[in-house]
């Protein structure tokens, strides 16, 4: 995953790296499954490092957008009835990152920004 390579320059702990990978995987999966409804489309990843070891990963799609963000972020909420999904994507992102911000416009797409401050290794 490209994210690992980028985050590596911060020399993260293994658990931090797997937290980030998991959170990004959730956001990208959402973009593919929900944003583009499993049809072709581009998913943009914008990764930034700020001072004090703050990492920000933005995942953007130009898909269908989310009507009700609050509801979408509720634990166990899922749109797929017969498809097997836990409805815990946002819950995982929120547990593994410090902040999760979601911007969405119906018909235009969704942007999810994940921010995490990495520990200072001592």
């Amino acid at each position: 995953m490209a994210v690992s390579g980028f985050v590596a320059q911060l020399n993260p702990c293994i658990d931090e790296l797997s937290d980030i990978k998991t959170a990004v995987s959730e956001a990208v999966t959402n973009a593919i499954v929900h944003g583009y409804r499993e049809k072709m489309g581009n998913v943009e990843l914008i990764m930034k490092i700020y001072k004090d070891r703050i990492l920000s990963v933005t995942v953007r799609d130009r898909g269908c957008g989310i009507e009700n963000i609050e509801k979408a972020m509720e634990p166990l909420f899922t749109t797929g009835v017969d498809e097997e999904r836990a409805g815990l994507g946002f819950t995982v992102m929120e547990s593994f990152m410090d902040t999760v911000k979601v911007h969405s416009t119906v018909g235009k797409g969704t942007t999810v920004t994940l921010v995490k401050r990495l520990r200072i290794k001592g």
Binding site: S25, T29, E84, R85, A86, G89, T91
Partner: peptide, 13 residues
């Protein structure tokens, strides 16, 4: 080596 919430869906199902 890696699992996200899809794995939870798998276990729950």
């Amino acid at each position: 080596t890696f699992m996200d919430s899809s794995g939870l869906g798998l276990v729950m199902g």
